[in-house]
Deep mutational scan, measured.
Amino acid sequence: EDYYQILGVPRNASQKEIKKAYYQLAKKYHPDTNKDDPKAKEKFSQLAEAYEVLSDEVKRKQYDA
């Protein structure tokens, strides 16, 4: 799945936009606030993985290549 789609940001998003999108979605899908939703944990880990790659310039360049 596309990391940009997961975070809901365009491919040319700035680091600030990526961070903002991640924090909004992380708050929304955090397992502690969605105890009754088994998919929230999965969504949250996808968000974390996408953010880890896109927030790191080197990893992001490799991902975009």
Rank of each mutant, 00 (worst) to 15 (best):
V53M: 04
Q15M: 13
N12W: 10
D56L: 02
D32M: 07
D2W: 05
E1R: 13
A50F: 01
A40E: 05
P10G: 10
D37P: 04
N34V: 10
E17R: 12
L7E: 00
F44T: 04
Q24M: 15
E49D: 08
D64T: 02
P38E: 10
V9D: 00
A26C: 10
R60S: 01
A40S: 09
L47M: 07
D2T: 09
V9H: 00
Q46L: 12
Q24G: 08
Q62V: 08
A50Y: 01
Q5I: 09
Y23D: 11
T33I: 12
S45I: 14
K59P: 01
L25Y: 04
T33E: 12
S45W: 15
E42W: 14
E42L: 13
Q15R: 11
Y29D: 03
A21F: 03
Y23L: 14
H30A: 09
A48V: 14
T33W: 09
Y23N: 11
E17P: 01
E57H: 07
A26P: 01
T33V: 14
P10T: 10
Y29P: 03
E1M: 15
K39V: 15
D64Y: 02
K20D: 15
E49P: 04
Q62N: 10
A65R: 07
L7F: 03
S45A: 14
E52Y: 10
Y23K: 13
E49G: 07
Q62M: 09
D64F: 02
K35L: 12
Q62F: 07
R11A: 05
E52D: 13
E42Y: 13
Y63I: 03
E52W: 08
N34C: 09
E49S: 11
Y51Q: 01
K59Q: 06
K16P: 09
P31G: 08
Y4P: 00
I18R: 00
T33C: 10
N12D: 12
P38S: 08
E17Y: 07
E17I: 08
K20P: 01
H30Y: 08
Y4T: 00
K61A: 14
R60C: 02
A26S: 11
K16F: 15
Y51S: 01
R60L: 01
I18Y: 01
R11Y: 08
K61L: 07
E57K: 07
N12H: 09
E1Q: 14
S45R: 12
L54G: 00
L54I: 04
Y4F: 02
S14E: 06
A65E: 15
K27F: 10
S14L: 08
V9C: 05
S14M: 06
K16R: 12
K19L: 14
D37M: 04
D64N: 04
K28E: 10
V53F: 04
K41S: 13
A65Y: 07
N34M: 11
L25G: 05
P31Q: 11
D56V: 03
P38I: 09
Y4K: 00
H30I: 07
L54D: 00
Y22C: 02
K41N: 09
E17D: 14
H30R: 07
L25M: 10
A21T: 04
K41M: 15
H30P: 05
E49L: 12
S55V: 06
P31R: 07
S55M: 06
T33F: 14
D2I: 03
Q46E: 06
A40G: 06
N34W: 14
K43I: 12
Y23T: 13
L7C: 02
P10C: 14
P10L: 09
Y51E: 01
A26V: 13
E57A: 09
K16V: 13
Y29E: 04
A40W: 10
Y23H: 09
K61Y: 05
K43H: 09
R60N: 02
G8T: 03
Y22M: 04
A13E: 01
K35P: 14
L7W: 00
S55P: 00
L7Y: 00
A26D: 03
Y3K: 03
I6S: 04
N34L: 13
Q62A: 14
N12L: 09
A21K: 07
A65L: 12
